[in-house]
Amino acid sequence: MTDTATISPTKAWVMAARPQTLPAAAAPVIVGTGLAVHDGVFAALPALAALVGALLIQIGTNFANDYYDAIKGADTDERQGFTRVTQSGLIAPEEVKRAMYLTFAIAIISGTYLVSVGGLPIVVIGLASVASGIAYTGGPYPLGYHGLGEVFVFIFFGIVAVTGTYYVQAVDAVAGIPMTIPSGTLPLAALVASLAPAALSTAILVVNNVRDIETDAKTGKRTLAVRLGYRWSRVEYLLMLAVAYAVPAVFALDPAYSQFALLPLLSLPIAVRVARTVLTRTDGAALNPALEQTGQLLAIHSILFALGFAAPAVL
C-alpha cells in the first residue's frame, strides 16, 4: 500500500483514474482500426472518436469501482492491490461519485459525433457500455460481485469495442444516419479479431481477482476467482492466453490475409513470463506487477495484431 500522507490531490485523482488500465480501453480500438485499414474502410475521425469514448468509459468505470467497492465494504486495509482513493480517504466518496457521473456524461456527449456517423446502433452500444460500467460494482446486482466481471470485460472491452470501432469507420461512407447495421459494415472478421483483445482484457481481470481471492471472500465479494479458486482461475488465465494467440493463427491461415497476422506471436515470451508468476504466486508483491505486465502484453499484442492487418495494405 502507498503512504497516503505524501500524496497530492492531483496524484490522487490520477490514481483514481488508474492509467495502468487504459491499455484495456485502447487495445480493441487499435485492433479494429488495423482491420479497417486492411479492408480499405479506415476513417480517421471516427477512429479517434472511438478511442476517446473508450478511454472515458474506462476511466468512468474505474471511478465507479473505486466508489462502490469502498461504500460496499469490499475494499479494506487487508487488500493487496493498488491504493483505492475512496477507501483510503484520499478523496471524499461524493467527489469520486460526481467524477464518475461527470466522466460518463462527457463520454456520452463526445459520442454524439459517433451517433451522427453510426446511428442507432451506436446509441445502443454507448448506453449499454455506460450502464454496464456502473453496474460492474454498483446497482442492485453488481456484476463483479456475482462472478460476471469477466463476462462484462470480454464483451465490452473486446467484442463490442473492436466491432464498434470497425463499424463506425466502415459506415462513415454510408449516406444518412443508420437505424440498423448496413450490409458490409460489420464483417465476421471483426468479430473473430475481437476475441484476442477480449481474452487478454479478461486475463487482466483474472490476475486482479486471483490476487484478491482471500480479501474478496471475507467481504462477500463473490468474484469468479472466489468461486473457482486458485487452480481453476489459473486455468482460466491460460485459456485466455491461448485464445489470444490462436486468433492471429486463424487469420494467417486465411488467404484473404497474410503471414503478417502472426506478428502478435512476437509477444509470446512476455506472456510466458507473466504466466509463470500467475501460476505460482498469490501475493500482491508479485501479482500487482503481473497485472500491469498483462496490461502491457495486451497493448503490445494489439499493436502487433493491428500492424499485421494493416501491413499488406500499406506496404
Rank of each mutant, 00 (worst) to 15 (best):
A70W: 12
R84V: 12
I59M: 04
L56I: 04
R79P: 05
T83M: 07
G60N: 08
R84M: 11
Y68I: 07
N65A: 11
D75C: 09
T86N: 08
A70T: 15
T76C: 07
V85T: 12
I71S: 12
T86D: 09
G53M: 02
N65D: 15
Y68T: 13
Y68N: 15
R79V: 01
N65Q: 11
L51E: 00
D77C: 01
K72M: 08
D66W: 11
N62G: 09
A50L: 01
G81V: 04
T83N: 04
A49F: 10
R84Q: 14
E78K: 15
I71G: 11
Y67K: 14
Q80Y: 02
I59Y: 00
I59S: 01
V85D: 03
Y68S: 15
A70F: 11
V52W: 00
I59G: 03
I59E: 01
L56H: 03
T61D: 08
Y67Q: 14
L48V: 15
Q80F: 02
F82E: 14
A70C: 13
D66N: 13
D66S: 12
A54W: 00
G53Q: 02
D77F: 06
A49T: 01
A49N: 02
D69N: 12
Q80H: 10
R84G: 13
G53N: 02
E78D: 15
L48C: 06
I59T: 06
K72C: 04
I57R: 05
I57Y: 05
T86E: 06
D66M: 11
F63W: 06
A54C: 00
Q80T: 10
N62E: 07
Q58F: 05
